[in-house]
Design a protein around this nucleic acid. Structure first.
Lengths: 229, 229
DNA sequence: ATTACTTAGTGTAAAAAATACACACTATAT
DNA sequence: ATATAGTGTGTATTTTTTACACTAAGTAAT
């Protein structure tokens, strides 16, 4: 027999701030809604959780439905629970940020029906968002600004092989400020989690930079000693 | 007309890790449950949210019911959403840590019926807890270990007037390690958010220490420049 | 093949912050 | 007066952070 208590007292949803870096700009994936409320508005991708999935599984599922990809890096960062944040009733939403390597032109899979389309949009040029999604985004950006100083999340935005300049670009975009090239390289190499490859950047019309990759094994080994950028 | 969508899909609760410092030890307030499930077990104080209160209001209410006090310092830190974390059904819980000045022997208010009693228990000697509350506690402690390095939360645990040794005790208990006295004092005074009082500790049988208080105005002014302990 | 262009890659000195470390002072109790 | 227990203080060393500018390498255009 399935017990009946405790009684459901809310709808719970997930909203995702999915970041992508296309080589020049920091973007997030927004959807244009096809349903009330906020029909035709832009919004963060999100959905109600299923009754048989954990909050985390739900976030994974939503990202999968949106992109067709699994194993997208994501972390929960806050739960928004104002009574009237959803015009149709009580919805508490658990927010995740997520990060994706762009460029391999990942065609987005057909979207779930509540969205007309999805589009990568520069975080500096966000349209007006439905619900309290601007606020959710702001908190998410704030969160990764903090976390990028301690955690190697920048590499989740970069292709497997990347140049140090690309890493620096990601840091500068997230932190919103310029960094000194020499100091940045010194610091990021000093952690010993980047592996220099015997390979150069291709297809550029200037001196090709050395490629590196993030060494997850070494990072795991050093994990106790926390990274501080 | 009240719309009916979206439909409730979960129970949502709040759980609180309420920290207290009694001069020597770091404690949390646990309750002994009077109801199934986990009747007679120790657990974190918590409850279902009301349908007309925000998540934050709900946490405030729970702390108020438990202690009779308002304006307890608290912060949300994580939402636990495993499907089977509650044996009687789907309950997603939003966790808060909170901090309270002890010592002024705050008699705890009569508890809500689901608890037999509440008791302050040393974090180093926690009993077995019901649900996934040990895990929730562990994450909470981890969180404040991080946050105490950036935010002035130690002062929430201390009386209005305190000695530098008391501050150091709080830091040592939360961080779980000894700190150098001279370096600690140098550092904590360098932020300029403590105000030295013309007043000494009383009732001790040795040289009385100078009392200080936390200057919230100055802290607010310097807020951009983040504190780093 | 020369030149122009664009980004890659590198070192050092100065300043600031973190660390390690030990003893005299003072209030009380006996 | 003396024993006791916690208060309060300074300096030298090491480490980390910051500021700063030029040469090297590859491509493209002529």
């Amino acid at each position: 027999m399935k017990e009946v208590l405790p009684v459901f007292n809310s709808a719970v949803s997930i909203d995702c701030v999915l970041f992508g870096f296309d080589g020049g700009e920091l973007k997030i994936l927004l959807i244009e809604r096809n349903e009330e409320p906020f029909k035709d508005w832009w919004a963060l991708p999100g959905n109600l959780i299923g009754e048989d999935e954990s909050v985390e599984q739900s976030a994974s599922r939503i990202l999968h439905e949106l992109t067709g990809l699994s194993d997208i890096y994501m972390e929960q960062y806050y739960t928004f629970g104002e009574v009237n944040r959803h015009p149709q009733g009580r919805v508490i939403t658990v927010a995740y940020y997520a990060m994706l390597r762009l460029g391999g032109d990942k065609a987005l899979k057909p979207l779930t029906s509540y969205a007309k389309k999805a589009q990568w949009i520069n975080v500096k040029e966000l349209p007006k968002l439905g619900f309290d999604h601007q606020h959710i985004f702001d908190k998410g950006l704030e969160k990764i600004k903090r976390r990028i100083k301690h955690l190697p999340i920048a590499f989740e935005l970069l292709p497997e092989k990347f140049t140090l300049t690309q890493v620096q670009n990601v840091y500068e975009l997230i932190l919103g400020k310029k960094l000194d090239k020499r100091n940045f390289r010194k610091k990021i190499l000093s952690f010993g989690v980047l592996k220099e490859l015997n390979e150069k950047q291709k297809g550029v019309s200037f001196r090709a930079a050395t490629l590196y990759k993030f060494d997850r094994r070494k990072y795991a080994k050093l994990f106790g000693k926390e990274i501080s950028f």
